[in-house]
C-alpha cells in the first residue's frame, strides 16, 4: 500500500463571475505516492496541478473520488481528526513571504505546529526544537526573534520548510517551492529539501512547471494537462521515451545549455499555443 493514494478525483470550481464558465480543475485524477519517494506533478499553469496538491491535503474538498493517507480516508474525517492528521502532512508554498504571518516572529511561526500538535512539550522544549530546526534548515538561531519581512526570499522559504518539517510529517506537498527564487538560491533550496528527505524519509509531492527542476529532484513524474494526468512514469523513462504528445511538447520546450542546439522548441514550430501544438502534432 502506498502512503498517499488519490483515486479518481473530480473538482469543479464555480464560475468567478455570473455568466462565466465553471472551471473543471481535476477530471478524474488518480495517483499514489510511496513512502519516502518524490513524485513530481508537472504541467502548465491552469492544468490543475496546484489544486491537486491542495486536494492531497484536503485543503480543498473534492466533488467525487477519494484521498487516502496511510489507508485513512481524508474525505470522511471529522474536523478534529483531520486537524490531528495534519501533523503528518504538510505544505510548502510557492510564495514564501505570503505564506508567513507578517506579524509573527520567525520562531513563533516555526513553533506553531508543535504548539498545536504537541503542546505537552512545554515552552522550553519547544524553544529548543525550534532553534535546532532553524539551524537544520540553514538559518542562524538569532533569526527566531525577527519578522518575516526582515528576511530574504530564500531565507523566508527556509522558514516555510522549517515549519513544514518540525512536526516530522511523512508526507509534504511542495507547491512550486523554488519558482519565485533566484536561480542560485533555487539550487540551495532543492539541495536542502533533498537532504531533509533522506534524513527523515519523507514523501514529497513536488508540484512544478519546470522540467529542469523536476528532472533533478523526482523519482517519478506525473504529467498533468487540462485537469488530467496524461502520463506517469519513473523520471528516466519519461525523459527517454515520452509517450503523450503533451509530454513530448514539454520535453522539447526545454532549453538546452547550448544555444546552437537545433531541436529546442521544435514541437512548437508553426503552432501559436501549447494546446495547438499538442492537439495538432505533425508526425516527426
Amino acid at each position: 500500500m502506498s502512503l498517499v493514494e488519490i483515486e479518481d478525483v473530480h473538482k469543479v470550481f464555480p464560475a468567478r463571475q455570473r455568466g462565466g464558465e465553471p472551471v473543471h480543475a481535476l477530471k478524474g485524477v488518480s495517483l499514489h505516492v510511496n513512502e519516502g519517494e518524490t513524485l513530481a506533478v508537472i504541467g502548465e499553469s491552469g492544468s490543475g496541478k496546484s489544486t491537486l496538491g491542495r486536494v492531497a491535503l484536503r485543503l480543498i474538498d473534492v466533488d467525487s473520488g477519494a484521498v487516502r493517507i496511510d489507508g485513512k480516508d481524508l474525505g470522511t474525517m471529522d474536523a478534529n481528526t483531520l486537524r490531528r492528521q495534519r501533523a503528518d502532512m504538510q505544505l510548502v508554498f510557492q510564495e514564501p513571504f505570503e505564506s508567513l504571518n507578517p506579524r509573527m516572529a520567525i520562531g513563533a511561526i516555526v513553533a506553531e505546529p508543535l504548539q498545536i500538535h504537541q503542546p505537552q512539550l512545554g515552552t522550553t522544549e519547544i524553544r529548543r526544537q525550534v532553534l535546532s530546526t532553524l539551524e537544520h534548515v540553514g538559518l542562524p538561531q538569532s533569526f527566531a526573534d525577527r519578522l518575516p519581512g526582515e528576511l530574504s526570499g530564500g531565507q523566508q522559504q527556509r522558514v516555510g520548510i522549517a515549519r513544514a518539517i518540525i512536526s516530522r510529517p511523512r508526507f509534504v506537498v511542495l507547491d512550486e517551492p523554488t519558482s519565485s527564487l533566484d536561480l542560485s538560491i533555487r539550487a540551495q533550496i532543492l539541495a536542502l529539501l533533498a537532504e531533509l528527505q533522506r534524513e527523515y524519509s519523507m514523501a514529497y509531492l513536488f508540484v512544478s512547471h519546470d522540467m529542469h527542476t523536476v528532472e533533478w529532484v523526482s523519482d517519478r513524474i506525473a504529467v498533468m494537462y487540462l485537469g488530467e494526468i496524461v502520463e506517469t512514469k519513473p523520471t528516466r523513462e519519461l525523459f527517454d521515451a515520452p509517450e503523450h504528445p503533451y509530454t513530448q511538447t514539454l520535453l522539447s520546450a526545454r532549453l538546452s545549455p547550448d544555444p546552437r542546439e537545433p531541436h529546442a522548441y521544435k514541437a512548437f514550430a508553426g503552432h501559436k499555443t501549447v494546446r495547438d501544438a499538442v492537439e495538432n502534432q505533425e508526425p516527426a
Partner: peptide
C-alpha cells in the same frame, strides 16, 4: 496564503 498555511498546519 498564511491563513491557508495555518489551516494546513492544523490550527
Amino acid at each position: 496564503r498564511f491563513i491557508e498555511a495555518a489551516t494546513a498546519t492544523g490550527a
